[in-house]
Design a protein around this nucleic acid. Sequence first.
RNA 1: GCCGGGGUGGCGGAAUGGCAGACGCGCGGGAUUCAAAAUCCCGUUCUGGCAACAGAGUGAGGGUUCAAAUCCCUCCCCCGGCACCA
Length: 878
Amino acid sequence: MAAAPLRDSVQDRRRINMPESEYNFAEIEKKWQAKWKQNNLFAADDRGTKPKCYVLTMYPYPSGVLHMGHVINYTIGDVVVRYKLLRGFDVLSPMGWDSFGLPAENAAIRTGVHPHEFTEKNIARMTEQMHRAGWGYDWTREVATSHQDYYRWTQWIFLKFYEKKLAVKKTAPVNWCDSCQTVLANEQVHDGSCERCGSKVFQKDMSQWFFAMSKYAQRLLDGHEQLRGKWPEAVIAMQQEWIGKSHGAKVLFKIKETGDELPIFTTRPDTLWGVTFMSLAPEHPLIEKLVKGTEHEERVMKAVKEMRAQGTSEKDLADREKVGVFTGFHVVNPVNGESAPLWVANFALMSYGTGAVMAVPAHDQRDFEFAKKYNLPIKAVIVPETGLNESVMTEAYVDPGDMLFSGPFTGDNNVEAMPKIIKWLEEQGYGQGTVNFRLRDWLLSRQRYWGAPIPIIYCDKCGTVPVPEKDLPVKLPTDVQFKEGGGNPLARSASFVNCVCPKCGAAAKRETDTMDTFVDSSWYFLRYCDAKNEDAIFSPEKIKRWMAVDQYIGGIEHATMHLIYARFFTMVLHDLGLIDFDEPFTRLFCQGMVCKTAYYCNACKWLHESDVAFADGAAKGQKCKKCGGEVTSEMTKISKSKLNIVDPDVMFDKFGADTVRLYMLSDAPPDRMQVWSEEGISGAWRTLNRLWTLINKSLDKLSPVGEPLPTQLNSKNVDLRRKTHQCIQKITDSIEGGFQFNTAIARCNELLNMLRGFDKPVNPAVLREVLETVVRVFSPIVPHFAEECWEKMGHAESIFTAGWPEADPKVAKEDVIEIPVQVNGKLRARITLAADADQEKMERAALADEKVQAQIAGKEIVKVIVIPGRMVNIAVKG
RNA sequence: GCCGGGGUGGCGGAAUGGCAGACGCGCGGGAUUCAAAAUCCCGUUCUGGCAACAGAGUGAGGGUUCAAAUCCCUCCCCCGGCACCA
């Protein structure tokens, strides 16, 4: 008999059958979205008198459709916006588009559709989706970074940076793909090859535009102090690592044969006496100067060329074997006059320090490995009490110890001696104490069409000339073709390149590089404050009204790039006198990734859930429907490649925006990973339907709007009111205490459960208070639903004008409470007492309890701990 | 290796020194139904017990405390970031 076929019953059960429901979300959501638009609910008042609150979610790249990452991000933002509205703030909630960038240009190469057209179509589609989701924005402030009225000011900022020498052109080694005719970012290089065409990428020195961000390294670091406690600790930590400040000394070595000076940076000046060779970065200019015309030239330059041809991607660097070549020259160590061979090593970085590293193999693991490989001497100068024998060492000794062969410091502890050594180096004129940063200048040149043109003109006579402000924007030309491997289309556009020098009027050429899109996003939050200003980048009054951003919300993937660039821009604009603050984002919140189970079959690779046959009962023993093979599953970030994506449109159509919103926030704290499952969303659906039914059933039992509560209520009604006010208090705390929407929603559910289990008739005024409270505290999360209920309950105005409910502590206060009684820390009984019972009363009641008596019988009471209003613990012996 | 975040039922999670498992999912049972779906009610940490109840239990081990998921020490595992930075 054939094996029983795997049933698809689990699959079938997984398909959520929509219950018949009177809750017509499609109609309700459409209705309220139209009303909010009509009543300008989200129009930010530039001249309002209430305290302001600027809530910003990171704007999207208009890729074409929203994904679930956007949904969680913008839902959190919208809940905050509506909550702040309810709390009486003038709220600014803008939205816009990060609309320059590579995908549109690649699409143009593929399909021939101009990037502008492609982008506008995507923006239209995504705007539609945002309305559908019910997110509230002040659309009059919409910006798109690819529009002329935006990039005009991006260019204007570039000119301001240029004036202050903060935008500079310098030669730098870049990843160059000859077949694509363009520079590649490190992450676009895979195993030394171009990610697009697969041809070999090599390093090339090119003249590129940079922002002098390294000048701001210390400021960027110092600024973290005011962000502490308001930004996620992880983001601050990542930025600190990225900026990478280190203390040490700059020491001047000399080339023995030529007398050339060679400055080096070290964090370990205490090991200067242990230097046994010197390593230069392959890009170091001194190499060519030294070996040119000597017997060493051919051998050294060949090796250098090979080193420079190695890939520069992160992975390449990590896996690379240490190699080097002896230059034939030597350096003289200033501290002891000893000479050491000068090598070129592939692990030395031209972009850090001075590009030259003193090598102390005894005390640096990397140098140790290099010395072992090339048989270079090892000299220990820091030794532990147990001593150190160079000939048997298997790794570098990096711990503290006593200094040896170290001139005036011999015998000192190296850690204690460090400041003295630096002082001594300075006195002797050998070097000086210094700090060094890992943070580099920001390379902003891109050999691409779809970006903001850099407003610079090159004139044979006048040199580099900035475009005068009155001539901005430098517009992108339209007479361009996009073709594979064609390099930068701008460079081929005669109408763009050829121009007249603004200084002398002679024929000149335009810069054809465009700006990195991170430049656009480094100031968009400022433009929102005054988005339609045609005469200035923004007016100081409007900036004063809205900045800084009170709450910024976005993905943690922007921790180092965007969030450092935006802080850098803000500091520079501050120094230019354009704004009077230097941190743009007061509070930052980073939401978690949206994950979903992904299925994998060895033969068929990643599978759609619909191609998986589940064994009955559990998610084990799942088989591939295509080939019958074993299927494994993992919980992972939703992505196209793993076929576990969720389409927001489908979810909105099936469940409605409110249910999707409620589900996204109800399961886990929003900074953690979110697990998407259709079973899960059905819980949110049920919650809304129950509440809908309850409210509709109760409409004719409610007291008229505005009728005061009776002065006398029976105890059941008092209980219900108490729970209601406790609920308001807890929900307010949950939201204020760091966006704990999941526990806020749980409190609402508790109140609803209590109401449903309530068998006696509820006083009409109490019933109104309870139901209105639930609807009001739910309103930021499920706004359409709440508006509809609010209207049905007899209110003419939007629920978002009604304010946030206040908890009355007198009503919330319990008068009778249950006190747990422990014996030796173990729970043995619960006693019911008046909430204000004093310690003595509590102790007496606890000791009188039957179960407690049984536990302590025949034992000696050592101590009774009574925490008023909370618990009793009896410590016994014997 | 360094930095950050975690480890609690079948699952997502709650509780930040004071009743472990709120709320939800799933699962089991019942009501309703010709039947199913949907809906409603009850149950659901594990072990033993018909039950009352007892014992165990928050990654592992130790410690502080009347009392530890929570604080301290040692260690293991998972996720994210950084990693030739001299």
